[in-house]
Computed example of a mutant assay.
Amino acid sequence: MVLSAIRGGLGFLTRLPVGGGESEWDAFRRAPVTFPLIGYVVGGLAALPLLLPLPVSTAAALYLVTLYLVTGVTHADGLADLGDAAVVHGDTDRRLSVLKDSQTGVGGLLALSLTLVVLGLGAFGLAGAGGRLALTAGVVIAIAAEVGAKAGMATLVCLGTPAHDGLGAALVGENDPSGLLAVAVACLPVVALAPLTGGPAVVATLACGPVVALLVRSWGRTHLGGVSGDLIGATNELARATAIHVGVVTWTLW
């Protein structure tokens, strides 16, 4: 069951060629603990360039390239849709209509562009956080940011209510708050790496995912009537970009 859920999670959250079918998807959407487990995979792969003896700018660029080669653009598309829905004038039905529209407007472009700029600047901080060829603070923060972002997605899935029928409902409708205990346990291994960052940076980085998820959930309840698949994807992108900066700043100051 767990292996099926992980395979389904890799198929949904990444572009890795793991195969899988309907049974793996069903196992994944009923097991929110899978989200942070996939975060270890994505974060570890994306952090590999940070281990190489490269200039900071090159390592940062390769981190971004590797990240989106592994994850694809599905979640970024959700962020763009959220940006469009956030700036539209109208009631809930109007916002939902814009959210489902495949065309990207100014709000979506702005939300996506700003988040990518923030992420890119954060990547410079990761690349400069420690030396090379070792499990440096930058690598640990990169992994913690990804695990935390996926924990944020799981938080939204466990605490949200569906805004409409669709992908979001297939995830949110199958889970409840009880699933968060396993999600929290799945985050503990990365906390064990905290001594490598010299302080509380890992904990602060991890916390960003659930905090962003709660903010997105609040906005979704007010403006959309619940959680959609786009909000789940947007949470991943917003939480990662926020967490990297929080982690680097915390590591720098403490």
Score class of each variant (00 low, 15 high):
L109E: 04
G11F: 00
I38L: 01
L3E: 04
A207C: 12
G39P: 02
I6F: 14
V227W: 03
V248L: 02
G226V: 05
L121P: 00
S23R: 15
A207Y: 08
I141Q: 14
T58E: 12
A145P: 05
G107N: 04
T197Y: 00
R30H: 13
V190K: 06
L224I: 11
A192I: 03
D101W: 08
A170P: 06
G90F: 07
G19Q: 02
C208E: 11
L99C: 09
S218W: 15
V203G: 12
G120Q: 08
A163V: 11
L64M: 15
T250Q: 11
A5K: 07
G233N: 10
V33M: 09
T136S: 15
S178M: 10
V191I: 15
G173A: 09
G209N: 11
A5E: 05
P200W: 15
M153P: 05
T71R: 15
R29Q: 01
N236I: 01
N236W: 00
L62T: 09
G128S: 10
A129M: 10
A31N: 12
V42K: 01
A163H: 12
F28W: 02
G122A: 11
V73R: 11
Y63T: 11
A47T: 06
A213G: 09
G43T: 03
Q103H: 14
Y63K: 09
V185R: 07
A127M: 09
V118D: 06
C158H: 05
V183K: 04
L133S: 15
G148E: 00
T136C: 07
V41P: 05
P200T: 10
P32R: 01
I38T: 02
G19H: 03
V185Y: 07
S218Q: 14
L224W: 12
A59F: 02
A60I: 05
G44A: 06
G21S: 15
L159D: 12
P177K: 12
V203N: 09
G122V: 05
V73L: 13
D165T: 10
A204F: 12
V56K: 05
A204H: 08
S57Y: 09
L62K: 11
A234L: 08
F124T: 04
L67H: 13
G83Q: 07
S102T: 13
G130V: 07
R30V: 00
T235M: 07
P210G: 13
G83C: 08
I232A: 13
L214F: 10
L114V: 15
S97F: 00
V140L: 07
T58D: 03
L159A: 13
A239F: 03
